[in-house]
Simulated scan of single mutants.
Amino acid sequence: MTSDFPFDTEQFDRLIRARRSIQPVQFVPGKIIPDELIERLLENANWAPTHKRTEPWRFVVFSGEGRQKLADFQAELYQRTAGDKFQAAKYDKLRTSPLLSSHVVAIGLKRHPDVPEIEEVEAVACAVQNLHLTATAYGLGGFWSSGGITYLEEAKPFFGLGLDDQLLGFFALGYVQNPPGKNIRKPIAEKVTWVRE
């Protein structure tokens, strides 16, 4: 079929609608994504929009034994900082969750003083969306988590982030054990106001 559009728009629409948050417990145990494919995902993330071209996204990729290093660090940091709110179940989850994934990508924001912080956060979120859509296109599962140690100041140095930077969570990647179910959205008409005059 001939089209005036430069890309296959039906395929693109299908890709957008196929994206799901797939948690690490749904990944195929022990099946490892080739590093070259992870690099492709990150390269596409790098093409996100960015005000003043600051490109604030920073990624630290944990694979192989590196996942254990991440697991140990986050569990120990949580234990050290939780105080009265410490929960053994949360501690155990932090120690085991990274090991369920093929790769875990820590998502950082490197602050630029000339751009409002919210715009830098938005740029990083766009980069993560690019990463997630690319993962979906390759049949991979992905899950962006902002729990655990994400917003602890003490976590930043471990990920190469400075005081003004932010840790915005972790993106877990793996092969999907069972295809995700149908996703739904409320009609766009409920969320859009048109002003035509």
Rank of each mutant, 00 (worst) to 15 (best):
L94R: 13
Y91V: 01
P179C: 09
P29E: 05
D13M: 08
L15W: 10
T134F: 01
K90A: 06
G142C: 10
P98R: 10
A82G: 05
S63E: 13
N130E: 01
T96H: 09
L77C: 10
S102L: 05
G147I: 11
S145T: 00
G141I: 07
S97M: 07
V105L: 02
E39A: 15
E55L: 03
T193Y: 01
C126W: 12
V195I: 13
H51T: 10
L94V: 08
D165E: 05
A137C: 00
H132E: 13
R20Y: 04
N130F: 04
T96D: 12
A125D: 09
F62A: 12
L161P: 11
G64Y: 06
D13R: 07
Y151W: 12
L100T: 04
K90L: 08
E36M: 01
L109I: 04
K31D: 11
G66Y: 05
Q129M: 04
Q74Y: 05
V60C: 11
N130R: 00
S101G: 10
K90G: 01
S101A: 15
V115Q: 03
E119Q: 11
H132L: 13
K85Y: 10
G83L: 02
K186R: 14
L167Y: 02
K52A: 15
I149M: 11
L100I: 03
A123P: 06
K191A: 10
H112C: 10
S97E: 14
G160F: 07
V195R: 07
I118D: 02
G139M: 08
G148S: 08
G162I: 05
T193F: 01
A127T: 09
F7G: 00
S63K: 14
I38V: 15
F5C: 05
G142E: 13
W57P: 05
D13I: 08
T136S: 11
D72F: 10
L70Q: 04
N178Y: 04
N130P: 00
E10A: 13
